[in-house]
Computed example of a mutant assay.
Amino acid sequence: MSLLSLSQMKTSIGQYHVLHDVTFDVPEGGVFVLLGRNGAGKTTTLRSIMGLWKPSPGSVRFRGEDIAGLHASDIARKGIAFVPENMGVFGGLTVEENLVLATAKGKFDDVRLKRIYDLFPALEQFWTKQAWSLSGGQKQMLSVARAIIEPRELILIDEPTKGLAPSIIDGMAEAFAEIGQSTTILLVEQNFNFAKRLGQGMAVIDDGHIAHTGTMPDFAVDTALQEQLLSLSS
């Protein structure tokens, strides 16, 4: 059974119909990538899953339970975390304080904290620094770390490589690959090289519709389909 299953999900924002019958399944484990041109509906899909925008009608099933219409806080308690494109860190708080806010009881599990240090050594180095002073890559590390400081079954991550240097992107890919071994990731990404490096399954959204689903290895070698759906030329 799929960990996450969207069926005919529609989302409107004001008078605009943004998503139209979005349907795809995210299997448990690894990284599933949602691709699409700018404005295709990728972020709206993640926000609708998370309950930040309300899809109607259609269903969003997580482990078989329809979570469409639940509040975002209730969805988070079911084991889903969201890393937004703007990272959402609190600039006036330290790295430590940002992570404390993401814990369930206001204290760290030492094993999980060590895992974060192993994935993102810079966060240990800048532990007492205010988040505003971090680089863009370090803020992204902090944003992802907040999502995994508590056990999660699914993490929704929106455009994590945007504006980052290649060396930081390489480190992020390694971290995501490790995280994906124990936690399913639904990744929205414009950097196709990054996406194909990580993804197992994939879907392409175009103008609010799912235009293609399949495996990333198959899509990565089909340059004609990439050009058709993403305007990617070989």
Rank of each mutant, 00 (worst) to 15 (best):
V95P: 11
P84W: 05
A175C: 06
I49T: 02
T128A: 15
R152G: 03
K107F: 12
R197K: 15
K10T: 13
Y16A: 13
F32C: 03
T11L: 08
S5H: 08
W127A: 04
Q200F: 14
S5E: 14
L101K: 02
S2E: 11
L164S: 01
S167H: 14
T11A: 08
H20Y: 12
E150L: 10
A165I: 00
G91K: 07
K42C: 07
F90H: 06
D21N: 13
M9F: 06
K107N: 12
G36V: 00
S48K: 05
M202W: 11
A68R: 07
G88A: 11
L186H: 03
L119W: 14
K54P: 07
N98G: 05
K196W: 10
V33S: 02
K162L: 15
R63C: 13
I210F: 09
I210Y: 11
I179M: 03
G29R: 10
M172D: 06
G208E: 04
E124S: 14
F32W: 09
G136Y: 11
K162I: 09
E65S: 07
V204C: 06
N193V: 02
F192Y: 15
L229F: 10
L154N: 04
F62A: 02
H71L: 09
G64Q: 09
T161H: 05
I67A: 03
L186P: 07
G91V: 09
F62H: 04
Q226K: 10
K78V: 05
K105N: 14
K10G: 11
I49R: 02
D21C: 01
L101C: 10
H20A: 00
I75E: 00
L93I: 01
G92L: 12
T183N: 02
A104Q: 15
F126A: 08
A40P: 09
E174L: 15
A224H: 13
V100P: 06
T215E: 12
V31P: 05
K162G: 07
L93M: 15
K42E: 04
T44W: 12
P160Q: 04
K114T: 13
S73I: 09
E65V: 11
W53C: 12
R146D: 08
E159I: 07
